[in-house]
């Protein structure tokens, strides 16, 4: 027989560390994860560079071609933001889908989901923490991009002799585009958890944002198809972030800015719920 040199049963080891798992800790952990990957910085840098670059190329050309006699809302409240948004909205949604999706799928492709769940075994808090960090990154990055491209647009507008106006509608537009990109990040995250494959999640996210509206457009003469188009996140995002939102009857279904924001929130909730259900039910 071997000598079983063991501490008597019952004298079990107790960890000397006094720390406990908290949601705050998981959020901090997710923040370290996001920060420590180059892809996060690339996504952020791309979003800022492309949207500012887009504004720098396009806005002066568009405004330069305007004729003051032509009735254009150049001096409308937040017009500079509206111009800036057109690039940010387009570039931002692609990057937000990719960033959100990768936040979930990179855990599966790298195998790090195992250590993540070994530290925080309950799925709900992990998903919440990831959603908070995705929102934080998207909000900060899109705000920087918005300020940069608005500055470029404003410079072009004033250079052409028009005055600027920033009022309540300007704020709504700014909040709208930032929220649209946060929601888009969440849609990517939800799809990432639901599909677990980077290619699958990104492809279906971009399909929803870029392809589906164009496909449905062919059937837009039918009312129900037109209604579906109105409810897509891209349309709601457009309404929430563009000058059209200042006219509260612009959209028969969503009404205006508030309706668009609610519609976006529903999309986020649906995507995150789908991701959560798969995350909880399927083996990691």
């Amino acid at each position: 027989m071997t000598a079983l040199t063991a501490a008597p049963v019952g004298q079990q080891y107790r960890s000397t560390l006094g720390h406990e798992l908290t949601l705050g800790g998981i959020i901090k952990s997710e923040w370290i994860k996001a920060r420590s990957l180059r892809s996060t910085w690339w996504c952020g840098a791309l979003m800022v560079a492309l949207s500012v670059g887009f504004a720098a190329l396009l806005v002066p050309a568009v405004i330069g071609s305007f004729d003051a006699t032509f009735d254009l809302p150049l001096t409308d409240d937040g017009y500079a933001i509206s111009m800036a948004n057109s690039g940010l909205y387009m570039v931002g949604q692609v990057i937000a889908v990719v960033f959100g999706a990768l936040t979930a799928t990179s855990e599966y492709s790298s195998g790090s989901i195992r250590s993540t769940l070994a530290a925080a075994p309950r799925r709900g808090p992990v998903l919440i923490a990831k959603a908070i960090v995705v929102a934080l990154v998207m909000a900060v990055v899109s705000t920087i991009a918005l300020i940069g491209s608005t500055a470029v647009a404003a410079a072009a507008i004033t250079a052409n002799g028009y005055s600027l106006a920033f009022g309540a509608d300007a704020v709504k537009m700014a909040v709208g585009v930032v929220f649209f990109l946060v929601v888009t990040g969440w849609v990517g995250l939800g799809l990432g958890f639901a599909l677990r494959s980077s290619a699958g999640a990104i492809a279906s996210g971009l399909g929803l944002y870029l392809i589906l509206p164009n496909v449905l457009f062919f059937g837009a003469s039918r009312e129900w198809v037109a209604n579906i188009i109105q409810l897509l996140p891209t349309e709601a995002g457009q309404l929430a972030s563009s000058l059209a939102s200042t006219i509260d009857s612009a959209d028969p279904l969503l009404g205006g800015w508030t309706g668009a924001m609610i519609c976006l929130a529903v999309w986020a909730a649906a995507a995150l719920t789908a991701g959560y259900l798969v995350f909880k039910k399927r083996d990691a």
Binding site: L21, G25, I32, S112, A119
Partner: peptide
């Protein structure tokens, strides 16, 4: 990697 794991428990 270790920092993010440690962060969950402070």
């Amino acid at each position: 990697h270790l920092r993010q794991l440690a962060a969950t428990h402070g």
